[in-house]
Design a protein around this nucleic acid. Structure first.
Length: 583
DNA sequence: GCCGTTTTCGGCCCGACTGTTTTCAGTCG
């Protein structure tokens, strides 16, 4: 699938055009096209011209560029731009605080052709003095380069969310606040976030901002105003706090929750019916009459839309679905009835059955599946056949003491390098649920990895593929795998794909969830809990499912225990029957 | 470069903060 490559190409074209000082709307057109192609679940290579045209922001020219890229792996416009503009200028454009105009000045007035040149210029004290650049600007650029070198522009949601919650708690305790909320991509539960957006109301904004800038987590104050103040935390995450009037809180929450693309589309919609939206409210254009803004829902109501859950606000068709009354009724965390991927001290978990059962009951669950590692994972003290049988016996015994709750017998069996499973079918057949996953050979070729997963999916005893792409956010890229092939096979055999809710994984990703839905693949959402507190990660998994437009019916662990077991067994029987006919 | 129940041409979301200006440009979200 070349979608991501095309999206990256269009973004690069946009940046090059920016540096050239081209028509901003042409630039936006390329950026918009990049976002929409990047978010597509279908392969553009498999789409007809008419289908391509139906993608928002793709017109005749861009269809041509897409075709050109698919055919020749390159685009003439892009090649021409690269001849004209040194590639190093794109790096400079990535420096926070440096935009296209500055890049152009640097190139034209100081012959800067890349980051190295720029750093030399600063070291030799020749930056300040260029048009529009004095001492402060030089200092900001220097800091921007430092920030870029530190890298990690985006932070995993699991890291940002607790920091945001902590700051909110402190501000609540120490300042005269009315309301306060976390907005931005955190509120949309995006898997990585660039910064933390906070929104508050207060009669005394100066006081709030003063306390904010002097919180212990603050390493540096980036901007200090009465409406907006930005700081950098010790961890290097930027936090923006905005204080707005009570009457604008809803509009501001809508505005700062984004996404940008979602908001642009809403505003275009508003304009067409004579309305104007900004972060202070929604207004009639002709007489500036305010028609809403205190509550977030008023913005949507004024446009004739239902409330759109933040997780869907990516301009991924949610506005169109809303106007047609076709928004999905998204899954909620309360509908989850159990966790199907849990480790104990038998392998690398931290707790025994009783502690985990307690914690699961406290979450209101009806069941959990114990899925310790198999023997191939020596480092995790994985179970061999004998120990797994011992655990099965222990679970049976424990279940007899429980009422209204059931422990499912399971395993997280390793898919070995050659695609075989790490335990024989005999013992796997004694379990309620077999979860299979890859823990080694991440660098194998696309063909090999795909074949491994396919062979696991084809084993009739396997019910779930866990963390299907193997990624660790910000640490390890997903392995190279043909997910469409895996999804096709899983759909044919009714094998479920896991949304691993651990914030370090979120695997499947939201994007893959949407793709899985297209293939009508059953999903499960599991935390991969290693200690009892990990059960709380379920919220991240459900949010990821919601971002993928999942409804309760898509997710197996919304089922009551008996239905779930029936469902898991039916997969096996169907396969066994068809095998039986052949022989 | 896209797009159209006002338009096939002339629009294209909107505002805050900073720094360098002495009324605004650049950047960001």
């Amino acid at each position: 699938m070349k979608n991501q490559q095309i999206a990256a190409l269009f973004n690069e074209i946009a940046s090059l055009l920016e540096i050239k000082g081209e028509n901003p709307f042409r630039i936006r057109a390329y950026q918009r096209a990049a976002v929409n192609i990047g978010g597509l679940t279908q392969d553009v290579a498999a789409m007809a011209d008419e289908e391509l045209r139906s993608i928002p922001g793709i017109g005749p020219d861009l269809v041509g560029r897409i075709r050109e890229f698919l055919g020749e792996e390159r685009v003439a416009l892009h090649e021409d731009l690269k001849k004209e503009i040194p590639a190093g200028l794109l790096d400079i454009l990535r420096v926070p605080g440096v935009g296209p105009k500055t890049v152009k000045t640097l190139y034209e007035k100081a012959e800067v052709r890349g980051l190295d040149d720029l750093e030399t210029l600063i070291r030799e004290g020749n930056l300040a003095g260029l048009p529009g650049i004095q001492r402060k600007a030089e200092e900001n650029i220097r800091k921007g380069i430092e920030m870029l070198h530190r890298g990690r522009e985006r932070n995993p949601l699991g890291k940002a969310m607790p920091i945001a919650d902590d700051i909110v708690r402190k501000l609540r305790a120490k300042t005269p606040l009315g309301r306060i909320a976390v907005a931005g991509s955190i509120r949309r539960w995006k898997e990585t976030v660039k910064d933390i957006d906070l929104l508050a109301t207060s009669a005394r904004p100066e006081k709030v901002m003063k306390v904010f800038t002097s919180l212990p987590v603050v390493r540096e104050v980036l901007e200090h105003g009465t409406k907006k103040t930005s700081i950098l935390t010790a961890e290097g995450i930027q936090v923006d706090l905005r204080v707005v009037a009570e009457s604008s809180f809803g509009a501001a929450l809508q505005h700062f929750t984004g996404s940008k693309e979602h908001n642009i589309k809403l505003r275009e919609m508003a304009r067409r019916i004579g309305l104007k939206i900004n972060e202070y409210g929604i207004f009639r254009e002709n007489d500036e009459m305010r028609i809403g803004g205190r509550r977030e829902g008023e913005i949507y109501t004024a446009l004739g839309l239902p409330f759109i859950p933040p997780e869907l606000r990516e301009d991924g068709g949610e506005i169109e679905a809303g106007s047609e009354g076709a928004l999905p009724r998204l899954l909620t965390v309360e509908e989850i009835r159990g966790d199907l991927h849990v480790h104990t001290r038998w392998s690398d978990g931290g707790h025994d059955l009783d502690v985990l059962v307690q914690a699961a009951k406290k979450k209101g669950y009806q069941y959990i599946a114990i899925t310790d590692h198999s023997k191939g994972l020596g480092i995790a003290h994985g179970l061999d056949e004998r120990r797994l049988r011992d655990q099965i016996a222990l679970i049976d015994e424990t279940n007899r003491t429980l009422t209204g709750f059931r422990i499912l017998k399971g395993v997280e069996v390793d898919i070995r390098g050659d695609g075989t499973l790490d335990l024989p079918d005999g013992v796997l057949g004694e379990l309620d649920i077999v979860v299979a996953s890859i823990h080694s050979g991440f660098r194998q070729s696309r063909e090999k990895i795909t074949a491994r997963l396919l062979s696991a999916v084809r084993n009739p005893l396997v019910g779930v593929i866990a963390h299907p792409t193997g990624r660790l956010l910000g640490e390890r890229d997903p392995y190279d795998v043909d997910m469409e092939a895996v999804f096709r096979e899983a759909a044919a055999r009714g094998v479920a794909m896991e949304i691993n809710a651990h914030p370090a994984r979120l695997d499947l990703s939201d994007h893959h969830v949407r793709m899985a839905k297209r293939y009508r693949i059953p999903l499960v959402i599991s935390t991969d809990a290693h200690v009892n507190g990990d059960f709380d990660y379920m919220e991240y998994g459900v949010a990821t499912a919601r971002r993928g437009w999942a409804v309760p019916g898509d997710v197996l662990n919304t089922l009551p225990c008996s239905s779930l077991l029936k469902r898991l067994r039916s997969g096996r029987n169907r396969e066994v029957r068809s095998l039986g006919r052949k022989t």
